[in-house]
Computed example of a mutant assay.
Amino acid sequence: MANHEAQGRTGTPYPVPIERGKILEFAAATRSANPAYWTSDAPVVPPTFLTTQLFWQEWAGDDANPWRHVELDRKRGMHAEQEYVFHGPPPRAGTTLTAQSRIEEIFTKQGRRGGTLTFAVMVTEFRDADGRLVAEARLTGVETERAPEADS
């Protein structure tokens, strides 16, 4: 069962260096043919590139990741949604952003087969060297109250 007291918990800030090689690796992994990623010395990030911040968050230590306080049961949990919002042009290689995550919301809805569904939403803000909000990543996880019953 999710820990509703985790709502509002904020992790410590951590750096997210935007490296050209990592952008190229990401573009290759996603099979992108977009020349914006391949031909520039300072390419922009692909829209979903910010997912890689989870690695930086892990490397930054336990205090950076507030998600661990949510305590969703992994046997009944899943990743439900991911959203990215850019507040201007996407960042380019050579930039270092500062990221900080918070548990924005934990709520329940009645499910059809697995009982009550518990949702948790983590928002990660990405800021530039001047403190300007560049982008946000919104991760939603869900946990079922019980395993869905097999169809008859």
Rank of each mutant, 00 (worst) to 15 (best):
residue 91 P to H: 08
residue 91 P to Q: 03
residue 91 P to N: 05
residue 91 P to A: 12
residue 92 R to T: 08
residue 92 R to G: 00
residue 92 R to S: 07
residue 92 R to W: 00
residue 92 R to H: 10
residue 94 G to I: 04
residue 96 T to Q: 02
residue 96 T to V: 13
residue 97 L to T: 02
residue 97 L to M: 02
residue 97 L to N: 08
residue 98 T to Y: 09
residue 98 T to E: 12
residue 99 A to Q: 00
residue 99 A to H: 05
residue 99 A to Y: 08
residue 100 Q to C: 01
residue 100 Q to Y: 01
residue 100 Q to I: 02
residue 100 Q to E: 03
residue 100 Q to D: 00
residue 100 Q to F: 00
residue 100 Q to L: 01
residue 101 S to W: 02
residue 102 R to M: 12
residue 102 R to Q: 12
residue 102 R to D: 01
residue 102 R to C: 11
residue 103 I to Y: 04
residue 103 I to F: 11
residue 103 I to T: 13
residue 103 I to P: 11
residue 104 E to L: 10
residue 104 E to Y: 05
residue 104 E to G: 09
residue 104 E to M: 08
residue 104 E to Q: 13
residue 104 E to F: 03
residue 105 E to C: 03
residue 106 I to F: 01
residue 106 I to Y: 04
residue 106 I to R: 01
residue 107 F to Q: 09
residue 107 F to S: 11
residue 108 T to D: 15
residue 109 K to H: 08
residue 109 K to I: 06
residue 109 K to E: 12
residue 109 K to R: 11
residue 109 K to N: 09
residue 110 Q to V: 14
residue 111 G to E: 11
residue 111 G to M: 05
residue 111 G to Y: 06
residue 111 G to Q: 10
residue 112 R to W: 11
residue 112 R to E: 14
residue 113 R to V: 14
residue 113 R to Q: 13
residue 114 G to K: 10
residue 114 G to D: 14
residue 114 G to A: 15
residue 115 G to Q: 12
residue 115 G to K: 08
residue 115 G to C: 13
residue 116 T to D: 14
residue 116 T to R: 07
residue 116 T to Y: 10
residue 116 T to P: 10
residue 117 L to D: 10
residue 117 L to M: 15
residue 117 L to R: 03
residue 117 L to Q: 09
residue 117 L to Y: 04
residue 117 L to A: 07
residue 118 T to W: 01
residue 118 T to R: 00
residue 118 T to Q: 04
residue 118 T to A: 08
residue 119 F to H: 05
residue 119 F to T: 03
residue 119 F to K: 01
residue 119 F to W: 06
residue 119 F to C: 04
residue 119 F to R: 00
residue 120 A to N: 02
residue 120 A to E: 03
residue 120 A to L: 06
residue 120 A to V: 04
residue 120 A to F: 06
residue 121 V to Y: 04
residue 121 V to S: 03
residue 121 V to Q: 11
residue 121 V to L: 12
residue 122 M to I: 09
residue 122 M to H: 02
